[in-house]
């Protein structure tokens, strides 16, 4: 049985929360959909890319969306799930020195970028320019299996969903189960930060 009162209490809190997501690939698209289903009130989505056929093996897009900008395609998918979720899409490439710009006003930032160097630059910039803002990041998405190696590493305001032994995407493949697992790990961390009051730590 579902406790409706508890459900409404949680959804009521999430309704007032905004989450920014940098990168709308396997991590970002799956995390965004999960957060929308959970009832997060506002999502700020940032990516410069278009949906390609080879994204469909792990990213939350559909065949008829090939060629569309990811920000538009994902906004469309979220609207089909829950039209009351506010979606702010930024169709842009994050530039070093200005990476924090779209995320100034969100409650929690999710790093869902692909390239390790850009990940590191983004993490450095968010932590230094938006002090106090919780940042959820991930590393070790590639491959399959070894789910038990995934851990959450907390370093101040950085919550890193992390598998220190995982191969990079250049050494291995990106496949749906592990990508979706880590995307949802990130989304689940966002809920923990918001609902357990970790924001004020």
């Amino acid at each position: 049985m579902v406790d409706l009162r508890k459900r409404e209490e949680v959804r009521g809190k999430l309704r007032r929360v905004s989450v920014g997501i940098a990168g709308l690939g396997g991590l970002g698209s799956n995390a965004a959909v999960s957060l929308a289903r959970a009832g997060v009130g506002k999502l700020v989505l940032v990516d410069f890319d278009k949906v390609e056929e080879n994204n469909l093996d792990r990213q939350y897009y559909f065949r008829h969306q090939i060629g569309k900008f990811k920000v538009d395609a994902l906004a469309e998918n979220i609207r089909s799930i829950d039209p009351s979720v506010e979606v702010d899409g930024f169709n842009l490439r994050l530039e070093r020195g200005f990476m924090e710009k779209p995320f100034n006003d969100v409650d929690v930032v999710v790093e869902a970028l692909d390239d390790a160097e850009i990940k590191a630059a983004f993490i450095e910039e968010i932590l230094s320019k938006l002090p106090g803002k919780p940042l959820v990041a991930a590393s070790g998405v590639a491959g399959y299996g070894s789910s038990d190696n995934i851990k959450t590493l907390r370093l101040g305001n950085l919550f890193l969903c992390y598998d220190e032994h995982a191969p990079s995407s250049e050494e291995s493949v990106l496949i749906a189960p592990r990508v979706a697992l880590i995307a949802n790990w990130e989304a689940n961390l966002v809920l923990e930060i918001v609902l357990n009051g970790w924001l004020s730590d």
Binding site: L113, D115, L160, S168, S169, V179
Partner: peptide, 10 residues
């Protein structure tokens, strides 16, 4: 000191 290795994939 914490040293965290980042790998590509997202």
């Amino acid at each position: 000191v914490n040293v965290v290795r980042l790998v590509s994939g997202g």
